[in-house]
């Protein structure tokens, strides 16, 4: 009898979870457990193994004058309705987002959408303790969040802001702006470039086409004409070589790397003086940071990819 009542109440609560929110009694949360194995054992052995005592002394009589029915007063009800679902904490989060989404649907949105980066699907799963979150649900939630994010900042409710903060990634790539270089009080502009393992810094001033690399003349530093041309390519294709003086510092790597690091550095430094040249420099490939590097050697290999010859034995 007692067992029946308990099982019944649990089933009832589960069915309640799908209905919209109502006041939920503040009882201590009890972990659900399964009785199926014990019931199977009982059947096998032919005697009763499990006796469950009710947590309170229950008087099995209906009190008519109480405002709440007896069952509702005595049964154990979890904090959240989604407690009995497969993914309780995600469902809670989702419902919370949906609630605000519906609530603030009337607010005006900005014309240009925000470029916020949200927590990824994997991160959401990790946060919920690896609940089986359907991707579709996740996408739906993000869609709603994006919509909320586009609310006109003037009328943005605080609760939405808080919600967005919870779901935003800590690192927002679009917030990171490249360092803006300006022409300094001496008329110099600075550009920095990299290639292979070399780094280069180039200072450009208006001048007559004189170049110093690490304190040496261009020919002394770069013996090969090819490298000299590489270094000054940006100025060459814009016909600016006789108009600027360059003071450059390069380090690391070999000659080619240093020369091509200088290409990038000088291109960037030139853009500080003349930003309108960007299109031309881009077209000519001067502003491309070549990401290629020497591939690392791996254990078991002779080089990065080369394997030792196969030997019978």
């Amino acid at each position: 009898m007692v067992r029946y009542a308990l099982v019944h109440s649990i089933r009832n609560a589960a069915s309640l979870a799908t209905t919209p929110s109502r006041s939920i009694s503040r009882l201590p949360i009890i972990r659900p457990f399964s009785t199926s194995r014990i019931l199977a054992l009982e059947q096998q052995e032919g005697k009763q193994l499990l006796t469950i005592q009710p947590p309170l002394d229950i008087e099995y009589e209906d009190v008519e004058d109480h405002p709440k029915p007896l069952l509702e007063r005595v049964r154990i009800v979890p904090d959240s309705q989604s407690y009995f679902s497969a993914r309780p904490s995600f469902t809670d989060t989702f419902l919370g987002v949906e609630h605000l989404y519906l609530k603030w649907k009337v607010l005006p949105r900005t014309a240009t959408p925000q470029d916020t980066h949200w927590t990824s699907y994997d991160e959401v799963r990790a946060m919920t303790g690896n609940e089986p979150v359907p991707e579709k649900r996740y996408r739906e939630m993000i869609r709603m969040l994006k919509d909320l994010d586009n609310i006109e900042p003037v009328v943005m409710p605080t609760e939405v802001l808080r919600l967005i903060d919870e779901h935003k990634r800590a690192f927002q790539p679009n917030q990171v702006k490249p360092k803006v270089f300006l022409v300094d009080e001496w008329g110099r502009s600075l550009g920095v470039g990299k290639r292979k393992t070399s780094t280069a810094k180039a200072y450009l001033v208006m001048g007559e086409g004189e170049v110093l690399v690490n304190g040496k003349s261009l020919t002394e530093y770069f013996g090969r004409l090819h490298d000299r041309e590489s270094a000054l390519w940006a100025l060459k294709i814009t016909e600016r070589i006789p108009k600027y003086n360059i003071f450059a510092l390069v380090e690391g790597g070999g000659v080619t790397g240093q020369a091509e690091a200088l290409t990038l550095a000088i291109s960037r430094a030139l853009l500080v003086h003349e930003p309108q040249l960007e299109h031309r420099l881009l077209e000519a490939g001067c502003l491309f940071r070549d990401p290629r590097k020497v591939e690392r050697k791996k254990p078991g290999h002779l080089k990065a990819r080369k394997m030792p010859a196969w030997v019978r034995r």
Binding site: E210, S217, L218, T219, R228, L232, P242
Partner: peptide, 8 residues
């Protein structure tokens, strides 16, 4: 241009 390329 050539003057600069040839190290001055």
């Amino acid at each position: 241009e050539k003057w600069t390329m040839s190290g001055g």
